[in-house]
């Protein structure tokens, strides 16, 4: 039954166990449409596992995930992508022996993206436009394995923008190990996509200056649970958060 809420994404008591280890523990979180939410927390707190659960890489042990009021936790990753959920990884998952342009064309192979034979020119044009948007157009004929780590992160992000509809973009440590110029391009692309296309972002990051600049709200994850939510300044002053980062 459809729940007529303004929430784009909602998790209810989401839990993931790996044998005796509980990585995500009854986590309930809500993301509004159009929001840029930061997910912060110490290493091993369950942030990436949460991303994997939302994107479908992992199947939840228990709990539910709703996208626009419809339950999605039973759906495969490619079906969730068709519903508009895109995911990037801390170590970019690009296709190393394909060119930059070929990497961009991969999302068009999905059944949900329409007749690719009729739209071939349109798809290539869109891919080239997005590459220009992230300043990678001069590299379009290069194999992805010849790009730097930061350029591959840009490519991974730009490839996600090819998916239509794009509702929710999950980014796992997009700024890790990238140089300031590329970081700036990533940030600008997030801001522009959010402002112009209304894309909702969930960004896992340890980079507090970037989180402060981009995110309306942050959720603090510790030992698999969400222990605080609010603006970065509000969350940073909560004693439980300080203890989680520094330790008892």
């Amino acid at each position: 039954m459809r729940n007529h809420s303004s929430k784009l994404l909602k998790t209810e008591n989401l839990t993931k166990r790996f044998g005796g280890l509980t990585a995500v523990n009854s986590l309930s979180i809500s993301i509004e449409e159009g929001e840029i939410r930061g997910i912060i927390g110490p290493n091993g707190s369950g942030k990436t596992t949460l991303m994997n659960l939302i994107s479908g890489i992992y199947k939840a042990t228990s709990g539910q995930i709703y996208l626009n009021g419809s339950r999605i936790d039973h759906l495969k990753p490619n079906v969730r992508t068709a519903k508009g959920i895109i995911r990037t990884f801390q170590i970019p998952k690009v296709f190393r022996n394909m060119t930059v342009l070929e990497n961009m064309l991969v999302p068009a192979l999905s059944d949900s993206q329409g007749d690719r034979y009729k739209r071939q020119r349109e798809i290539v044009y869109e891919a080239e436009e997005l590459l220009a948007f992230v300043q990678l157009d001069h590299m379009k004929a290069q194999l992805a394995k010849n790009l730097s780590g930061g350029q591959n992160m840009l490519l991974q992000i730009a490839r996600g923008f090819m998916v239509d509809p794009l509702r929710l973009y999950l980014m796992d440590e997009p700024f890790a190990g990238v140089n300031p110029k590329i970081k700036s391009v990533i940030m600008e692309s997030i801001i522009q996509m959010n402002r112009e296309k209304g894309v909702t972002f969930i960004i896992v990051s340890h980079e507090m200056p970037s989180v402060r600049r981009l995110c309306n709200r942050v959720s603090m994850i510790h030992e698999g649970s969400c222990i605080a939510e609010g603006s970065l300044e509000e969350v940073a002053n909560i004693p439980a958060v300080i203890e989680a980062y520094i330790g008892g």
């Binding site: 994107s55 495969k76 990753p77 490619n78 992508t81 296709f95 064309l105 993206q113 998916v163």
Partner: peptide, 23 residues
């Protein structure tokens, strides 16, 4: 296009799924 999907799958199984392809 089928060849692209096959090549992508051989290079990164998780990447191809999160790009929307039915692996």
């Amino acid at each position: 296009w089928v060849g692209k999907a096959l090549r992508g799958s051989s290079q990164n199984r998780i990447g191809i799924q999160t790009a929307g392809i039915n692996i």
